[in-house]
Amino acid sequence: MAAEEAIARPVDGPGMHTASAPLPERGEPAERAPHGWRIAGVLLPALFLIAVEALVRGDVLPDNLVPAPSEIARALWQLGGEHLLQHIAQSTLRVAAGFGCGALLAVAVGAAMGLSRRLDALLDPSFQALRAIPSLAWVPVLLLWMGIDEAPKITLVAIGAFFPVHLSVISGIRNVDRKLVELGAVYRLSSWRLFVRILLPAALPHIFTGLRTGLAVSWMFVVAAELIAATRGLGYLLSDGRETGRPDIVFGAIILLGLLGKLTDSAMKTVEAHVLAWRDTTNEGARA
């Protein structure tokens, strides 16, 4: 009894700190982000655009290199709503198709390599070499193999999405707590049930991190993809603005790519929060 009281009693001494507050209960956040900071995070880009507008109007920044945000908005408006939506829709469809194909293949291959050391030793050197190839280096190869239709564009986006997801799946499986695997062995789970019931759920946080990274890379690769004889898309719009000397169109396309990237990342983050609602972490509480 005395030993139990000694263990429960806080210990003070050199290098030891007495807890000033009890640990949060399950679902209770350790620290919440103040509401004002959330509002500031939304307003920060708007304040930046206002500052650029003022600097351009005050002739501090040259308008032929950095157009005023109002001029960018006017240029996008002059493109016409339907015409601009066609560019946005085309890029979005290419990202969705390429990311979907690349992510599915990455999960399958990454899971196989994460579960098999032999397969990982066989394939990892090749994948690491392919991962280092820049996106534009794939363009002439895909043109040669697939022509100028949609196939090479979607394939290039899939290549960009594959490697971040692939690495995250392997890392997630390899970093599963060994005690969980031993628990599966105690219950005599088959290899498939061990993967589905223990390894995959435990690796999901890593996998979602890779999915979000792969989605962001997909938006980067779609610009390179739309250099392949495209007549629609934000990458084409950006290239056309550069060739015609329209910095307002160039910056407009860049802003739209950033907005779409943010919206799709927020959607993926919402899916992650829903799928991983079972987690009991300080981050889960702080998100509220």
Rank of each mutant, 00 (worst) to 15 (best):
L105V: 11
P125F: 09
G258Q: 10
L211Y: 04
E150L: 11
V157L: 09
L44H: 02
T18V: 15
R74Q: 14
A96S: 12
G27T: 07
H87L: 00
V60P: 00
V141E: 06
S190D: 15
R117P: 09
R188P: 01
D240T: 07
P45R: 06
L143V: 14
L211I: 10
L234Y: 01
L167Y: 12
L130S: 04
E150W: 09
V66D: 03
A203Y: 06
P67K: 03
R57S: 11
H35T: 14
W219S: 04
P10Q: 10
E226Q: 07
L43V: 12
L123I: 15
V60K: 07
G110I: 04
G27M: 08
P140F: 10
L79V: 00
M113H: 03
T244A: 13
H274W: 15
R242T: 08
F99Q: 02
E226C: 06
T209Y: 04
T231G: 15
R193M: 13
A273Q: 14
G110P: 05
V165I: 13
L76D: 00
G241E: 07
A2V: 12
E31H: 12
A3P: 00
R57G: 07
I255S: 11
K153P: 10
T155I: 11
R38F: 06
L194T: 12
A103Y: 02
R131T: 05
L180C: 03
L119M: 14
G285C: 07
S91T: 13
M16S: 10
R246W: 02
V139G: 07
L65P: 02
W219K: 02
F99Y: 14
V165C: 08
T281C: 02
R232G: 01
D265V: 03
V169K: 04
G184I: 08
D12C: 05
A33K: 10
V250E: 06
G27C: 09
G110K: 00
P10S: 10
E53H: 13
G15D: 05
L215P: 01
S239I: 03
R26P: 06
